[in-house]
Amino acid sequence: MKVQIWADVICPWCGIGRHRLKAALERFEHADEVEVVHRSFQLDPGAPAGVARPVAEMLTAKYGMDPAQVAAMNARVEELAHAEGLKPYIVADNVVGSTALAHEFLAHATAQGMHTRAWDHVLTAYWGEARPVFTVDALVSLGEEIGLDPAGTREALTDRRHRSEVEREAARARALGATGVPFTVVGDRYGLAGAQDPETVLDVLRRAWDDAHRP
């Protein structure tokens, strides 16, 4: 059974949602027969490439929130992530920017047979260490750490060979009804919007499995 999860690298709820999916799979009776596929979705596809700014600055500009509101919201997300075992999980002191190159890097890594490993590494680097993921140089370094050829990675990111693939994945999510991420599709039948709790995800996994194996 296939589970597809659309996410953006800089979406804090995506990291939490992915963690909850893993927790649900640990309790799912047929987890060894589940293939988890990560899909790309940019929350801000119009963001300028190579430009990063503090999370607080972005939230203030985008939603008109005052600094106290921003600080409180970021603290709540961090506390929730820490309570679920994601620690460190850096939200307030992180930066955001265009994730176009990051998703193209993930597509390149997938083509090299490192799909899950690359997603794990990028998300851990960003949320666990607040490392930048917005430039070719930063992504080449991350790739080298998991065994990707730096010259090949740089070439793939420079010639933008995976750009259309990333755009198609986002278009597919929107066609399925996604308006944001995380967005999870279980067994090509059930859709889950948002970072649902492990119990809800587990229930959907079981229902999708039963549907697929019903005589």
Rank of each mutant, 00 (worst) to 15 (best):
K87I: 02
K87C: 12
A107W: 05
L101A: 04
E79N: 03
F105C: 11
R172F: 05
L59H: 02
H103A: 05
G85H: 04
Q112E: 15
K22M: 12
V95E: 06
A118I: 13
G180S: 13
A56Q: 08
P215K: 05
V185G: 10
P88H: 03
H162V: 07
T116N: 13
A75V: 02
A118H: 12
V36Q: 03
V55I: 14
D197Y: 03
A49K: 09
L80C: 00
E199H: 12
E145G: 09
G180Y: 08
R160C: 01
Y190Q: 05
D149S: 04
E169D: 09
E104K: 01
M73H: 11
G128H: 09
G17D: 09
G147S: 00
L205F: 04
V186L: 11
N74S: 10
D149W: 03
E29A: 14
T179Q: 14
V185A: 09
L176M: 14
G143T: 04
L106H: 06
W209D: 07
Y89K: 01
S40N: 15
F41Y: 15
H19A: 15
A68V: 14
L148H: 09
A47Y: 03
R163I: 11
T200M: 09
D120K: 14
L157W: 00
G143C: 05
M1K: 08
E104P: 04
E79L: 08
P67C: 09
A100Q: 05
A212Q: 14
P54F: 00
R154L: 07
V36E: 04
L21Q: 05
A83Y: 01
Q196E: 11
G17A: 12
